[in-house]
Amino acid sequence: MKPQMILTVFIMSALAVFTAENTFSAGALKQFGDHMGRSHHALLYKRQSCDSCHENSEPTAFPADFVCLDCHDEVELVQATARPEEEKWQNPHNNMHYGKDVPCMECHGEHRESELLCAGCHSFDYPDFKK
């Protein structure tokens, strides 16, 4: 299956769950059983499918870099956060210093708070970034 189709299927089933339970609070860090996780990935935790990101279902270490792209389409991601021409390299997913080469977990925490890599040196505005 193409990654984009995987995401579409997931979104549909995920939305079904979110709407049904009315627990949607985008991106929040929530407790799922023994683990903290992101509310937008609730379905993955409900299904106990730790291996959708990790190498196996009982992980002890970090997932592989860019595993997130199994479900999230890179091209769409770059488009979703694209900025006007004079700010084009502020796009976190295709940025000045590294292009598309920064592993997702360097900015997005899954079980922990997110720390934006760029924040130490710049104060660009990213309204949709979830701590």
Partner: peptide, 15 residues
């Protein structure tokens, strides 16, 4: 087949 996707970028088994 998701494990094959972007296999070149999944550089190490982090285990």
């Amino acid at each position: 087949n998701k494990k094959d996707y972007q296999a070149d970028r999944r550089r190490f088994l982090v285990s």
